[in-house]
């Protein structure tokens, strides 16, 4: 057996006894630490730790030409970099399917919750703001989806508007904050054998996880979901996961509010 398989067996044995590494409960998050304004040069920024997972999100605004089919709307562009320094498994190169999926799922939550009204990003005929949300994974220890959503949302709430004069943006002078409505948070669950645990760490994800599902919600509604991995979920399991997500979102929203000083 490889080391990974031995670790995987150990994790499964613990779960079968109702236990989890580090004395964590099945539905417990690790310690979540979120702070904003960490990169003052960016219009908005936030850093999120979930256990040893560490991600940084920077938001920049740039004046751009609107898309031809939406002449009076700005746009949001989300990208994720799984930096090679973040894990021995990450390598330099073009975006992997994992990093594309990560960026798109975070983006979908933010969009579906209507956090940014793209019409409010219209400047003048032929000029709109593009909001660039850049996710940097600095250390990988599992559950990137929740960490990136938390940091992304906090960075948007932290984001200031650059001034605009004579067709040019002025990043040193700002005119208030980016208009943001509502707030989305997500919870990610791992299926290991027939057990389901919240907030998997890297050991669990790499050695034991059969499937993963992320549910993004605001206060009342599910806004985005994404399942990943070889395994499967039953409809009953999903119902329970959705219920737990709504419960957990209360704590997560509080963490975001504290981080942005609301």
């Amino acid at each position: 057996m490889t080391n990974g398989a031995i670790t995987g067996e150990f994790i499964k044995e613990l779960l079968s006894k109702g236990a989890r590494e580090f004395g964590r409960g099945f539905n417990d998050y690790r310690r979540v630490v979120l702070s904003t304004g960490v990169i003052p040069h960016a219009e908005g920024s936030a850093e999120c730790f979930i256990g040893n997972t560490r991600v940084l999100v920077g938001v920049k605004l740039a004046v751009s030409e609107p898309l031809p089919d939406k002449p009076h709307e700005g746009d949001i562009r989300t990208a994720a970099e799984m930096l090679p320094l973040a894990s021995p498994d990450y390598e330099p190169g073009p975006p992997s399917p994992e990093s594309i999926e990560l960026a798109r799922v975070v983006d979908r939550g933010i969009r579906a919750a209507g956090m940014i009204d793209t019409k409010s990003l219209f400047i003048e005929e032929g000029k709109v703001w593009s909001v660039f949300i850049d996710i940097y994974v600095l250390n990988f220890d599992g559950n990137l989806f929740d960490a990136c959503t938390l940091a992304g949302v906090a960075a948007l709430l932290d984001c200031r508007m650059p001034a605009y004069k004579d067709g040019k943006e002025d990043h040193e002078n700002t005119v208030g904050k980016l208009k943001v409505t509502g707030m989305v948070t997500s919870s990610t669950f791992a299926k290991i054998g027939d057990k389901i645990v919240l907030d998997p760490d890297a050991t669990e994800e790499k050695n034991a996880m059969d499937a993963r599902v992320t549910v993004a919600t605001d206060e009342n509604l599910i806004r985005a979901m994404q399942k990943g991995g070889r395994g499967a979920f039953t409809a009953e399991e999903m119902d329970r996961i959705i219920q737990l997500t709504f419960e957990k979102s209360k704590d997560l929203r509080k963490i975001v509010k504290e981080a942005v000083g609301e």
């Binding site: 399942k227 039953t234 959705i242 219920q243």
Partner: peptide, 24 residues
Amino acid sequence: RTGEILLLQMDGNITREEFSTIVA
């Protein structure tokens, strides 16, 4: 054969109850 969900994606807005109806 098992009724298990192998792919699940979603965006927009739905409630927990609507999700159950959708699966059915």
